[in-house]
């Protein structure tokens, strides 16, 4: 019998576009699903603890209103209709730090304002992250040689992401938010809780 030759150039694997919500979730690569047997309702999700918790944390961070100076106006521009921050789930700016989990330090931190910023950070509940926006909050900025400006907010609170600029463009702002989401995605709670032992 003649061997069958298969022309491999003509085989195309087709990946279906995800349609239902569950398929879209699978497509992110973070959660695999198994459809339960027909006579049982409900679904079983296969994932890791890290991925599931991080997905819950990064998808909708609520910032606290702590705009201090010029960068606060860019914060308002980012949250308005043209560059929409609601796409990231962040349009709800909470006035009370107890209800927020992200702090944008936007603007110059002066020596007189520094203990209040530190108090605001300590009032936020865990888990919490800090993004330092603009050169004044990163290192003191153009006011580095002044007598009453703190040279960078990381002298008083720990910072996760620094966004440079004076003021940073809204596109740079959104890039910084995406970097923070990547950082949260890679956090490891299994190791922290000792589950690898």
């Amino acid at each position: 019998m003649d061997p069958v030759t298969i022309d491999t150039t003509k085989i195309r694997t087709t990946k279906r576009k995800p349609e239902t919500a569950l398929e879209k979730l699978e497509d992110t690569g973070m959660i695999n699903t198994i459809l339960a047997a027909k006579d049982r309702e409900g679904f079983i999700l296969l994932t890791t603890i890290d991925q599931f918790i991080n997905w819950g944390r990064l998808s909708s961070l609520w910032p606290v209103t702590s705009g201090l100076a010029c960068c606060a106006i860019e914060m308002m521009a980012v949250s308005m209709a043209h560059h929409d921050i609601a796409r990231f789930g962040m349009e709800v700016f909470r006035a009370s730090p107890r209800q927020a989990d992200l702090m944008f330090v936007a603007g110059t931190v002066t020596k007189r304002m520094a203990p209040r910023v530190k108090q605001l950070y300590e009032m936020m509940a865990e888990p919490k992250w800090v993004i330092s926006v603009g050169s004044c909050a990163n290192t003191g900025g153009p006011y580095h040689e002044s007598y009453c400006v703190l040279k960078g907010v990381d002298n008083i609170i720990p910072v996760d992401v620094y966004i440079p600029g004076c003021p940073p463009r809204p596109e740079a702002w959104l890039y910084g938010i995406i970097q923070l989401r990547q950082k949260i995605k890679n956090e490891g709670y299994g190791v922290k809780w000792g589950l690898n032992k």
């Binding site: 020596k111 007189r112 520094a114 203990p115 007598y147 990381d154 002298n155 008083i156 609170i157």
Partner: peptide, 26 residues
């Protein structure tokens, strides 16, 4: 300009100024 002064907040919410910033800085 070389002397750095720091500000902390006292019990009643008023500012206390000193040249020692140890209870403010990390």
């Amino acid at each position: 300009m070389s002397i750095e002064q720091f500000v902390t907040v006292g019990e009643d919410g008023e500012d206390i100024v000193s040249t020692d910033g140890s209870n403010l800085l990390r």
